[in-house]
Amino acid sequence: MNDRYSGTQITLHWLSALLVICTLSLPYAQDLVADLLGGTGGVFTLHKSLGLTILLLTVLRLLVRARQGTPRLLADHARWQHTAAKLGHGVLYVLLLAMPLSGLLFGKRPVEMFWLVTIDPLPVSDATRALARQFHLTAKYLLFALILGHACMALWHHYGLRDGVLRAMLPRR
C-alpha cells in the first residue's frame, strides 16, 4: 500500500480546495469584485459556475478514489481516529455534492455556466425551493467548520504527530 495519494488525487484535492474557498468567499466579497464581474449578477454567475464545477470535481474525486483507493496513513493510530477521519471526509464529500445541488434546486433563474452554457431552473415546488435554500444557507456554516477542522487536523498531524498525513497530500518537491 502506498503512503501517498496519487498525483491526480492531490491535484483534484487542491483544485477543489481553491474553488471551495473562492466560491464561499464570493458572496462576502461581492462589493470588492462586482465591478470586475459586471455587477452583483456576475458575482452570483461566477459563484454558481464554481459551485457546479465543484460538484463535477467531487464526482470525479470520488471515482478516482474508488479506483485508486487511499494510502493507509493511520495504521498506527487508534480506531477512533480512523472513524473520525472517515466521518469527517464523508461529511465533507456529502456537502460538496449537496451544496451545489441545493443551489440548483432553489434558483428560479437559469444558471449561466461561466457565461457560456445556460442551465434552466429545475421544475420543483416553492416548498422544495424554500427547503433547498434554507439547507444551502445553513450548510455553509457546517462547511466552514469542517474545512477549519480539516485544516487543523492536517496541521496537527504534520506538526504535532509528525506522521506524514499532510505530506501524503502535498505535491512532491
Rank of each mutant, 00 (worst) to 15 (best):
V20F: 02
D3H: 11
S102C: 09
P121H: 12
A132Q: 07
T83M: 10
L170T: 02
V64R: 12
G39F: 03
S6W: 08
R109N: 13
I119H: 11
G38V: 05
I54S: 08
Y28K: 01
V94L: 15
W156E: 09
L146K: 10
R133M: 12
L116V: 03
V59K: 07
M113N: 09
L170R: 01
S25R: 06
S16L: 09
A132V: 15
R133Y: 09
R72M: 06
T58Q: 10
M169G: 09
L92G: 10
A66S: 15
P100W: 10
D163F: 00
T45D: 14
W14A: 03
A139V: 04
G39Q: 08
L131C: 00
R67I: 10
L97F: 07
S102P: 12
A78S: 12
R4C: 11
R129C: 06
A139C: 03
R173I: 01
L142K: 04
P121G: 10
Q9M: 05
T128M: 11
S102Q: 05
D120C: 05
L24V: 13
G103H: 11
T40G: 04
I21R: 00
A132R: 07
H158L: 01
P171G: 02
L105G: 07
A151F: 04
R129Y: 08
R65G: 12
A130K: 15
A154R: 01
A130R: 13
D76Q: 03
R67P: 12
L52T: 08
R61H: 11
D120N: 10
L56R: 03
M153D: 01
T70D: 15
H150D: 02
L104T: 09
S6P: 07
W156S: 04
Y159H: 11
